[in-house]
Design a protein around this nucleic acid. Structure first.
Length: 151
DNA sequence: GCCAACGTTGGC
DNA sequence: GCCAACGTTGGC
């Protein structure tokens, strides 16, 4: 069982939206590296929900991967801002996964605290200018995150 | 609003 | 295949 960090802007889709819906398709990922990380996810993996473009940015909750290998439907939708004209149902290029709400942490764990706690090797999100919206979290780092978030 | 980081595109 | 131009992400 692996751990991940997944970013979303709270004003677009935040942890509160997921708590209301309980499950969601994590669609709209249009970066090959992030897509490939989604492709290597397995059912039962856990993902830290990270609020980006927030004040302050940081980890706010926990999700579980409940379905993998899904084709992102928004790539075929001409009215969607995620529409990809180079993609077709016969040749889809973007995947997504389905996630389930697990819980919200009692306090946000800010990027500033993460930077003071982890090196870039331990947690890639602390690297300056990191734009990847989906990142793997090494197991030792995941264990320390749970201590910080719930201890 | 600014800017650093960096992926993508297109000319050659 | 190189590289400049451009666009996007996201912190500050």
């Amino acid at each position: 069982m692996a751990h991940w960090l997944m970013k979303s802007e709270p004003e677009v889709y935040g942890i509160q939206h997921l708590r209301q819906e309980q499950t969601t398709l994590w669609d709209g990922i249009r970066n090959y590296q992030a897509r490939n990380f989604m492709r290597s996810m397995a059912v039962g993996d856990l993902a830290f929900f990270y609020h980006s473009n927030a004040t302050p940015p940081g980890i706010v909750g926990l999700m579980e991967v409940v379905e993998t290998g899904l084709t992102d439907p928004s790539q075929f939708d001409p009215t969607s801002s995620y529409h990809d004209p180079k993609s077709s149902p016969a040749n889809p290029r973007w995947d997504c996964v389905r996630l389930r709400y697990l819980r919200e942490f009692p306090r946000l764990l800010s990027l500033e605290t993460l930077r003071n706690t982890f090196s870039v090797e331990e947690l890639a999100v602390v690297r300056k200018g990191n734009r990847l919206s989906i990142l793997p979290v090494p197991e030792p780092t995941a264990a320390r995150l749970f201590c910080l978030l719930e201890g």
